[in-house]
Amino acid sequence: MTNAPGNGTIHFKGTDIIILLLAVLLCVWLYFSLWFGQAIGKADTLIVQIDDQSPTEYSLKNDRLLKFNGRIGTSLIEIKQGKARFIHSSCRNQFCVFHGWLTTPGDTTACLPNRISITLKGYASEYDALAGER
């Protein structure tokens, strides 16, 4: 505060300028992440439910293989590049494996004989439910 502001002049302090810069940066970042980014409406979490146990969540960020024991045997679930699928299950009909990749929030499939279901969840998903054959 070396030079006190006189009447009618606008006075910016160093801290003000830093705040203004940060505010402008925030704006630019928001435009990029919300207009050009894809974060919203994309799946980011896998929910695995086994029988009547409470569901467990796994991040889709890290590729990995998950192995679970259900009613009739094991089910192997793969997480890869933000998607998930059954790659093996002990059931005969293999509907869960045929279902292929889950990609969208709300997408779900289950190995009914083994009582294991997998569901994708996304931040601010666009739909409350998905309709159609599963």
């Binding site: 990749w101 709300g106 998905l130 309709a131 159609g132």
Partner: peptide, 28 residues
């Protein structure tokens, strides 16, 4: 299992449903 019925709304907004694309089942 993908067949659904709603009652009321979700916080004053109608329930919003996505209908799955059959083509996606074979071709992701």
């Amino acid at each position: 299992g993908g067949d659904l019925k709603v009652t009321g709304s979700k916080n004053q907004h109608p329930w919003r449903i996505g209908i799955k694309n059959p083509q996606n089942a074979q071709d992701p």
